[in-house]
């Protein structure tokens, strides 16, 4: 018999876990949807956000919030630099785009491993304490992170839907050649998109290491998680990614509490593969 408490745990912890997933995967989907770049370095931007922030807090004794902001901007700038130097030259070549971004991700992973080691590192908490909802205790930091995730995703939606640059991005994503014809600078749009996507990644990295810990292995782990979510949601659909983040997040926590932690990844992956067999384009994807 599943108790009310268990249900509450699944709902509360599932929602907060899903929020982080949505942040990670929406950035990955955004850059793909706009530019058709499969950015395998997304997970690296994610962890860079955490490690750079930790560096500023620990080495320069800066305030955690200020450090986070600096870190997010630095990762954004880094992503543009990476776009110009290594992605742009091979952008026409699907295979090479995957390979250079993957190589960049692994390069960053190795540098982190050599400088910070294999064990996790904690990001100083922005919020402390716990809250009791019903009978279930939940750390404040989780709820804060859920709130930040929701606000950020709303912000992203307003940016794309309401701002001029957002509309240009939207236009470029739907018809790159048409966008060039009406005089849009597609290259600039791609650079801005990768900046936004990297900023989302860095932010989610910082939030992630608040809740869990920064760890070099998360570069590939988060990437695989993002892949699963994006496949489930449909490639290129930001809406699909956000919805499937919540599906995966709830499945994960439900399996952890009801069946056992060791099964959570296995079952989440298996469900995604089954869905893929039934509907190969994912829940919201369209056939190319």
């Amino acid at each position: 018999m599943v108790s009310i408490n268990t249900v509450m745990i699944i709902l509360l912890y599932g929602a907060t876990f899903s929020g982080i997933l949505a942040l990670i995967s929406s950035g990955f989907t955004l850059i793909f949807g706009v530019s058709r770049i499969l950015n395998f370095a997304h997970g690296a931007f994610f962890m860079m956000g955490a490690y750079i922030g930790i560096y500023f807090v620990q080495q320069l004794n800066l305030d955690p919030i200020l450090s986070s902001l600096i870190s997010i901007i630095l990762v954004g700038i880094f992503s543009i630099a990476a776009y110009i130097t290594i992605i742009y030259p091979v952008i026409k070549n699907e295979v090479m785009t995957i390979i250079v971004t993957l190589a960049l991700a692994l390069l960053i992973e190795q540098v982190i491993l050599l400088t910070y080691g294999e064990f996790g590192l904690s990001y100083p908490r922005l919020v402390a304490g716990t809250l009791t909802i019903g009978d279930v205790v939940i750390p404040m930091v989780r709820l804060t992170i859920l709130a930040i995730s929701i606000l950020t995703i709303l912000g992203l939606w307003i940016f794309i839907d309401r701002t001029r640059i957002g509309k240009e991005i939207n236009a470029a994503s739907q018809d790159p050649e048409g966008a060039i014809l009406i005089g849009l600078n597609v290259n600039k749009i791609y650079a801005i998109t990768i900046f936004v996507s990297a900023v989302l990644a860095a932010l989610s990295g910082i939030l992630y290491s608040q809740m869990y810990a920064a760890n070099p292995f998360q570069i590939l782990n988060s990437l695989i998680l993002a892949f699963s979510i994006v496949i489930l949601g449909g490639l290129g659909s930001v809406k699909g990614s956000i919805i499937s983040s919540f599906i995966v997040g709830f499945i994960y926590i439900a399996v952890t509490t009801l069946i056992g932690a060791r099964w959570s990844e296995f079952i989440a992956l298996a469900i995604i593969i089954v869905i893929l067999i039934v509907k190969p384009t994912g829940l919201f994807g369209v056939e190319e």
């Binding site: 939940i138 750390p139 869990y212 952890t256 509490t257 932690a261």
Partner: peptide, 10 residues
């Protein structure tokens, strides 16, 4: 790489 210990502790 498992990280979701909070639900277990609760």
């Amino acid at each position: 790489g498992y990280t979701e210990y909070e639900p277990l502790l609760v």
